[in-house]
């Protein structure tokens, strides 16, 4: 393998692309604020809405600012694995904290 031809796998984004992503992120930020402050969504679904928008933003940053879209799949897999293990930690912990019965009622 010759080390000379770099261009073949280092992706270079155009300035237009980067600006488009940033604009998208700012619009989504405004949308989150508007939805949270002015659209009345009943209790658990307001969080769902906020997190969904945050996930879209996170996807944009990871895929296009962090270049995962063009990178080897393994790096993307690492990110997904990190998030997956975080979710495992949360879900299994909730299995305890959400289902405790009070041993001494009203304690």
């Amino acid at each position: 393998m010759s080390g000379q031809n770099h261009e073949h796998h280092h992706h270079v984004s155009t300035a237009g692309q980067l600006w488009a992503i940033a604009t998208g992120l700012i619009i989504l930020t405004i949308v989150t604020v508007v939805v949270a402050k002015f659209v009345p969504i009943p209790a658990p679904f307001d969080v769902v809405a906020a997190i969904s928008i945050a996930l879209v933003k996170a996807f944009l940053v990871a895929a296009f600012f962090m270049n995962l879209y063009w990178d080897t799949k393994f790096n993307a897999m690492l990110l997904i694995m990190g998030v997956a293990f975080f979710l495992l930690m949360v879900l299994i912990t909730l299995l305890d904290t959400m289902f405790r019965n009070d041993i001494v009622p009203s304690f």
Partner: peptide
Amino acid sequence: TSGQSAVA
């Protein structure tokens, strides 16, 4: 024996 829920 820590008092975690029976489900967990």
